[in-house]
Design a protein around this nucleic acid. Structure first.
Ligand SMILES: NC(=O)c1ccc[n+]([C@@H]2O[C@H](COP(=O)([O-])OP(=O)(O)OC[C@H]3O[C@@H](n4cnc5c(N)ncnc54)[C@H](O)[C@@H]3O)[C@@H](O)[C@H]2O)c1
Ligand SMILES: NC(=O)c1ccc[n+]([C@@H]2O[C@H](COP(=O)([O-])OP(=O)(O)OC[C@H]3O[C@@H](n4cnc5c(N)ncnc54)[C@H](O)[C@@H]3O)[C@@H](O)[C@H]2O)c1
Lengths: 256, 256
DNA sequence: CCGGGCTTGTGACTCTATTCACAAGCGACC
DNA sequence: GGTCGCTTGTGAATAGAGTCACAAGCCCGG
């Protein structure tokens, strides 16, 4: 179990633990934290926390828990957050602007170093303290100030070309918001955030739920339990259960 | 294999197929599409496409492929996209504004029906043709115009409370952008989109790559292959390989 | 320095997802 | 009407993730 390969699913949860630990460190109440407690904060179960952390090494103390500061450091290191990474946003529209103005990235060690667009009317304007540059200057810019991460916030059409330009400029990690599929060589990591897909997934489960509850209702009516269609409203969020959020990134480059 | 349970992973890919099929339908070149071709467009492999589609039923024709229109219809239906779903955005800041102004949702069958905030200076202003309402009016509003989906775009602090309010107003599907963990009863589906986590995941693989390549470089230097540190730049995106993007949602309600 | 309580770390198991590989079935052409 | 090429649909094999449950190990109090 020791050494190398940290499962993708674990990598995707490390940032969640990190955030929980930061909260603990801030309130300075506890110097250590148990897997149970961390699990509660992160919304996962304790066994998972322990297994995840065990991939990093044996950093806990039996009978006690994990030293908050030390674990914080280890996760930070493992995620490569010890140094600020520079990112460029390409496509300064609605979304690009919101991203550029977002303060939270800096806190987490990401520095938005430049904004690029192709629209003449956008180039040269100032957004969140940065001047929007012409996409043509990307390579040149990156040569001077290496960019670790490229963020694509253009419409779907442009995305593939932008990705290629980013790669050509030396960027190896890409986050895209465009709804198109972006294809890249196997040594490049792309993550895609697609809000429409998220909504569609919600729609699927919503519909499923409706199907089930209307079936149940029909049943009850048949069985004479209900007079007609009455409220099926469920109790509010008092006894809110913990809810697992997974976001598994993928590296299988799945070529063909 | 037939009937009911469509795996989560499959659900998450259906929207991708849907989009590919829409593109095909639009260009009206082909009436049918093979799993191979669809796989190419969606950036996954053909076996996966076939298995995914087989969960919906046997909609293909051996030796021929899938009828584009028919498949389109089936996926649309399965995802529950035959009717427009109404969504509300809570938190009209940088991100909320960008979301509200985004045209793409409407195209995909989602209607942003209302915007809510708590900030006096924001309430009453107009954003993307909608007047921002006071969050206190949420329940009332939802009673009149049922909301299928709630989108949380507030800072992390507010998110849990907003979620509870949404649930109280009858919303069963939630998409949150806040970096906090949102806990909900098991009958509510939450999906979380966390951009900072995405960047941190990229950071992890970036760092990993650097570790590997510098190790390799060190090796080469030892073996006398390289004079010093020279360009390790990889070829551009000519022979771009297909790249699998997974986003598995989770429904295990993982309570404790 | 011993025992009890507590919490980690991890093998073993289970469940889910992916991939392989091939028989079955369709259409077209002779 | 037979055969050939192509493509689906799916069992079986494999890989990956999650969960269980417990021995090992630490701390503290006596
Ligand atoms: N706005 C949202 O809330 C939202 C939600 C979901 C998805 N998205 C996705 O994010 C992307 C951007 O959305 P948006 O609303 O900001 O769009 P937008 O139209 O407001 O902005 C796009 C920007 O990209 C620029 N651009 C176009 N082609 C370019 C190219 N080849 N290189 C560089 N820049 C280019 C345009 O000039 C424009 O400034 C889209 O792919 C969209 O599907 C956005
Ligand atoms: N802007 C981005 O690009 C971006 C990127 C990543 C993550 N996020 C996340 O998205 C969320 C919103 O980000 P933002 O940049 O739009 O923030 P913001 O500060 O610009 O806007 C937040 C809005 O929410 C409102 N709000 C605060 N508490 C509220 C409550 N309890 N109920 C209703 N409304 C409330 C505020 O009045 C404000 O209008 C944050 O959680 C942030 O972490 C944003």
């Amino acid at each position: 179990m020791r050494k190398r390969p940290i499962p993708e699913a674990t990598v995707a949860r490390l940032p969640v633990y990190l955030r929980s630990l930061l909260a603990l460190a801030e309130e300075r109440r506890t110097l250590t934290v148990s897997s149970e407690e961390l699990a509660g904060m992160a919304g996962v179960n304790a066994a998972k926390v322990r297994k995840d952390l065990s991939y990093l090494g044996s950093y806990g103390t039996r009978g006690v828990g994990y030293d908050v500061e030390y674990l914080l450091y280890q996760i930070t290191r493992e995620l490569g957050l010890t140094q600020d990474l520079h990112a460029a946003i390409v496509g300064v529209g609605n979304l690009g602007r919101a991203l550029a103005s977002f303060k939270g990235f800096a806190e987490r060690g990401f520095r938005i170093a430049a904004l690029f667009d192709v629209d003449e009317t956008v180039i040269g304007t100032e957004v969140a303290g940065l001047t929007v540059r012409d996409l043509d200057e990307l390579k040149e810019f990156a040569a001077e100030e290496p960019l670790a991460i490229g963020i694509i916030a253009t419409p779907a059409d442009g995305a593939q070309e932008v990705a290629e330009r980013l790669i050509d400029a030396g960027v190896k990690s890409i986050l895209t918001f465009a709804s198109s599929v972006v294809k890249v060589p196997p040594d490049i990591v792309v993550r895609k955030v697609d809000l429409s897909i998220e909504l569609q997934i919600l729609s699927f489960y919503q519909q499923r739920r409706e199907a089930i509850s209307s079936a149940r209702e029909a049943n009850r009516v048949l069985e004479g339990e209900l007079p007609g269609a009455a409220g099926l409203r469920t109790g509010a969020a008092e006894h809110a259960a913990s809810f697992d959020e997974r976001r598994a990134g993928t590296l299988h480059s799945d070529r063909r």
